[in-house]
Design a protein around this nucleic acid. Sequence first.
DNA 1: GCCTGTTATGTGATAATATAACAATTGACA
DNA 2: TGTCAATTGTTATATTATCACATAACAGGC
Lengths: 161, 161
Amino acid sequence: MTDAQPTAFHDHDHDDCTQDVLAKVDRLASDRGLRMTPVRRRVLEILLEGHRAMGAYEVLDRLAAEGFGAQPPVAYRALEFLVEHGLAHRIRRLNAFAPCMHPEIDHAPAFFICEVCNLVAEAPGEAVRGALDAAGKAIGFRLKRANVEAVGLCPNCAEAA
Amino acid sequence: MTDAQPTAFHDHDHDDCTQDVLAKVDRLASDRGLRMTPVRRRVLEILLEGHRAMGAYEVLDRLAAEGFGAQPPVAYRALEFLVEHGLAHRIRRLNAFAPCMHPEIDHAPAFFICEVCNLVAEAPGEAVRGALDAAGKAIGFRLKRANVEAVGLCPNCAEAA
DNA sequence: GCCTGTTATGTGATAATATAACAATTGACA
DNA sequence: TGTCAATTGTTATATTATCACATAACAGGC
C-alpha cells in the first residue's frame, strides 16, 4: 500500500520519516544483495534531508566536504546506483534527484513540484500510470518506464497566494 | 479533436504531415499575432523533418550552416519561443525538442519515446492528465503544467524484438 | 591465508547543455 | 521619419554530465 498523503507537503517528524526510509532501504538492500557502500548510503541520507530535489553538484559538494572524492563521477555514480535500484528518483524537470519515499512499493510515482518552495512530493501514480499504459496500448507502444512530473503550487504556497 | 493515432509510428506521407502542421501554425500565428520570424519558422521546419526530438545544438548547427547566427542563444531563443507558444515541446528526458503536432488542440500531450529508433510520438494525454489532476487534487496541489514522458518500444521496434 | 576476477572509488580531462549580458538590428506604428 | 520595443547577433560563462584510466576494496575458489 502506498501512502495516500505524501509527507512532503505536511508537517511531520522528519527524523522519523528519514529513519523509516533508511530502515526500509537497509532491509531491502540485504534482501537483494545491494551493496550500500559509504558513499551510496551517505548520498541517500543527504537526499533525505529535505523533501527537495538535489542537483548532483550540490550532493558532490557535500560529499567532498566530508572527505569523499570531489569529482563529478563520485556523485553521479552513487546517484545512478540509487536510481537504478529504485532508492532515488531522477527529476528530469529539475536536473536533480530525490530520495524514493517508498523504496519497496509504488513503482509508478508521480512527482509534484512546488514552483515556489521547491518541495517535491512523490505521490502514488498508479492511476496515472494506468492511463498512460492505456494510451500506449492504443498506439501499440510497449511501455517500459515513464516519468510524470507536475509543476504547480503545493498546498501551503497555494494558500499563501 | 486529437488524432487517435499519432503519425510518428506509422507510415505516412511526411511532406503532407509537415505541411499540415505548418499551415496550422501559420493560421494560428496570424490569429494570435505571433511573429514567425525566419529563424523561428526555420527551427520549426527543422524540428518537423522527422518525428524525433532534436537537441538545441543539433538545431543550432543547422541554423549556422544556413547563415543564421552560430551561437547557442540563437537556437535556444527560437526554441523557447516555440515552446512558449505551444508550437513545440521540450522533452526533458532527452534534453531535446520536438515539434507540436497539434498546435491548436490537445494541450496535455503525453510523449512516447522509442528507445531503439528514437522516434517520439505525441499522443493525446487527456486521460493521463485527468488522473494526474485527481492525484494532485487529493494532496491539495494546484497543478499548472506537467510533463509525461514514456520510454519503451514503438510498434515497429517491438515487433522486430 | 592468498590469488584472481569483479565491483567500486578516485582523479583528471572534457563533453554536452544552457544562460547572462550587452550591442546591433529590425519592425511597428505614431 | 523618429522612436520604442522586440528580435537577433556575439562574447563569455555557468551548469550538468560523461569518458578514460588508475587504484583500491571485495568475494569466492582454492
